[in-house]
Write a protein that binds this DNA or RNA. Structure first.
Length: 110
DNA sequence: CCGATGACGCGCC
DNA sequence: GGGCGCGCCATCG
């Protein structure tokens, strides 16, 4: 059974618009007021029950976890693979140079 | 209960 | 800028 912490992470992640990104740290900050839980946020997303890729879940229930990246612009991990995450972001119009996202341009603030 | 884990972030070199 | 070490923390076994 999913913890309430994880559910909150999913709710926030689903607010990130197509073509924009947020960071693990920002989600942590929104949930507990600090960057301390950013690692736990990553874990929750890793266990995301409704990945955005694939069509196993109704689109309205899917969590666009590929829109969550690292604070330095690095893409971070992805259950569907690094290449897939990069591909999904590019499809949405997020420009990625040297495997980095320009946060000044695509960052979404909660 | 307790040690291990990991899709992080930051400071330092 | 790139790489390393360490602290953090919700979860898992």
């Amino acid at each position: 059974m999913r913890s309430s912490f994880a559910k909150k992470v999913y709710v926030l992640t689903r607010r990130i618009p197509r073509g924009r990104v947020a960071t693990y740290g920002a989600i942590s900050r929104a949930l507990c007021g600090s960057l301390r839980a950013s690692r736990a946020v990553g874990q929750a997303l890793h266990r995301n029950p409704s990945p955005f890729f694939g069509k196993s879940s109704p689109s309205r229930d899917r969590v666009p976890c590929h829109r969550v990246v690292r604070s330095d612009g690095g893409l971070g991990g992805y259950a569907g693979g690094f290449r897939k995450k990069r591909e999904l972001l590019r499809e949405e119009g997020v420009r990625i140079v040297s495997d980095r996202v320009d946060l000044r341009e695509f960052y979404f603030s909660f």
